[in-house]
Write a protein that binds this DNA or RNA. Structure first.
Lengths: 338, 338
DNA sequence: TTCTGGCACTCGTGCCCGGTGAGTGCCAGG
DNA sequence: CCTGGCACTCACCGGGCACGAGTGCCAGAA
């Protein structure tokens, strides 16, 4: 087990490296941190830390930099979550309060998070899986064409065009709408299939085809849209790390464009509490040089989606985690209000 | 006026430079292009072209590179639009045909365009300004709360929450919906305000407040959503230009995140025909090292929105213009069908 | 046992410097 | 008006060299 001081040395190394972005040596360490021991002692500690794989040197006669494993230890044991200052909190609230609809909330959140952390922000739209149905609307567009509109409790609206096999009267359609709504409003998406299963039977023979196809379109929409959408912002922040350019930035930009990858990434994060994935802990290869800080947010006590940031492994973890958590909290509040 | 051969020399310089990304000299030119004259002659021509500001040398004893003015001449006089190969055309169609809704169409278009041109693609959502109303729906959510849903002929759906000053019966609401739709369906957004102006008067005193607020919300939505949205893709392609890294890429990424800037950019493009803005012709400073190729697209004969690509001034203009035009055409078709 | 100061060693970085070659401008002659 | 020749410029490349940050090890002190 590592002694108290060695952990302290690791913490100092991480802090200095994050600040300066340069390998940190024993002498600089003793000067900037009151460790109470000489550089020589620190050197011994560093050698031990290197043996254990927490730090590494890019080349002989250079200082040490933390490894992924080192950051992991730092995050787990050494770093707290740095709370935001109250002006910052106020700024968040003010910024988010002006949102007019869901797109706007998500858009503002992304910008806010990118600005606060100075990193790439990723915000998932509130998930439909855990959402409930607020309303289903059926609009006759032509004699044999109906538009299906699904409204969720998170304010999301999805629409689908349905071509009917046989024309349907407005009355039948209104009937279907009424019955459909009485069954599914307020219910969770997952429960809907069962709830509407027997609905076609209660209609006249001639309308059954249409009813069936409307229902199956509804179910399709529920499933399809469970593949969530997300919004990204702050990619310009990637250019702050000119060092490993462009070897690093390219695969990251590519990964960011593949929303599927990001959704999987967020999906892997714990539902509650904060998840930090460091460097190679990320399954996707393009993100092996980055860390992901993600957290769930929701309108109630339950998380309906996740948000987070993607940045270099050498990030300010306490600060980033603080910002991510705070933003998630406020977004949750905003969603609960609307 | 420049002689025929000098124009030919400029064309050769542009082509070579776009291909190699390196300053091109007189000797290389005569070797790669059958100009029929010696390097010395080409040198004289190049000196003349430099005097006129069409080309420049980064430093003495280096080859020449085209200036913005040079590219401008190239695009205006020397370059045609390179049509796509028929396999490419088929690929476009296949790729776009699978789209299920508007978001999907736009998303696919962006990916397609980015892939074809290997540059950053920007696609504006079909504009509401020129759109017509397909349907307006009013859904009672609570006793004094109504959801307003607006559906456009381009398949876009917008929703707004309306808090009523006084409760309204479902019958009155249905009445309002019916009257509203009979007036505005099929009409252009711009005409709607006039068409609904006198509507509140025809309602009972107790409902007028609600009717008014519903109408004003509708008008607000029309105006607000005229500020268009857009989608961006292919930012990873920016890393292909490692040369001017990261001095160039940073402001570009920043500009791309400011959708307002991009919308203005697209707005400046001509409604019909293709617009090419080269380097400093772009008002936004961050885009001074890039060129923008934009074109309008639409479901009918009229353009409802624009799409285009952003790339380095040293881009393959004929190829890019060909791809942009082809994609715009197919997207127009897809929209017309749905 | 643990810490400390000293010391030799490594090696990346920055700098100077000369050679090379691509490219130019100019000029005299066809 | 074109061409070949020629002198000149200058970015680029590679080698050599000094510098210094940082290390590992060791003997002695606490």
């Amino acid at each position: 087990m590592l002694s108290e001081r060695r952990l302290e040395v690791l913490r100092a190394i991480v802090q200095d490296y994050v600040g300066t972005e340069e390998p940190v040596g024993s002498k600089a360490l003793t000067e900037r941190h009151r460790l109470g021991v000489s550089p020589a002692t620190v050197r011994n500690d560093m050698a031990a830390l290197e043996d254990e794989g927490f730090i590494a040197q890019p080349h002989t006669s250079a200082g040490r930099i933390p490894t992924d494993k080192g950051y992991r230890l730092f995050v787990d044991k050494l770093a707290g979550v740095k709370p935001l200052s109250s002006p910052e909190r106020r700024a968040i609230q003010n910024f988010l309060d002006g949102a007019v609809d869901l797109d706007d909330v998500v858009g503002r959140t992304v910008r806010l998070l990118a600005q606060l952390t100075r990193q790439v922000a990723v915000v998932q739209y509130p998930s439909l899986t855990r959402s409930t149905v607020r309303h289903v609307e059926l609009l006759p567009l032509a004699t044999a064409r109906v538009m299906l509109v699904l409204i969720t409790d998170t304010g999301r609206v999805e629409q689908r065009m349905v071509d009917c096999p046989t024309p349907i009267t407005e009355d039948s359609l209104a009937d279907l709408r009424a019955r459909l709504n009485s069954r599914v409003v307020g219910r969770r998406f997952a429960d809907v299939p069962q709830l509407v299963q027997d609905l076609p039977e209660s209609f006249e023979q001639e309308d059954r085809g249409t009813v069936s196809i409307v229902l199956s379109t509804l179910l399709e929409t529920l499933v399809e849209e469970t593949e969530e959408r997300l919004m990204i912002g702050g990619t310009a922040n990637l250019t702050r790390f000119v060092h490993d350019f462009p070897l690093t930035i390219r695969p990251v930009l590519e990964a960011l464009e593949e929303h599927v990858v990001l959704l999987k990434l967020l999906g892997e994060a714990k539902d509650s509490g904060m998840t930090v994935r460091i460097g190679h802990e990320n399954a996707h290869e393009g993100l092996n040089a980055t860390s992901v800080v993600a957290v769930g947010y929701g309108s109630g006590d339950e998380a309906v989606a996740k948000l987070g940031v993607v940045g270099p492994t050498r990030m300010d973890y306490p600060g980033t985690m603080g910002a991510v958590r705070a933003v998630a909290r406020y977004v949750g509040q905003i969603l609960a209000e609307s």
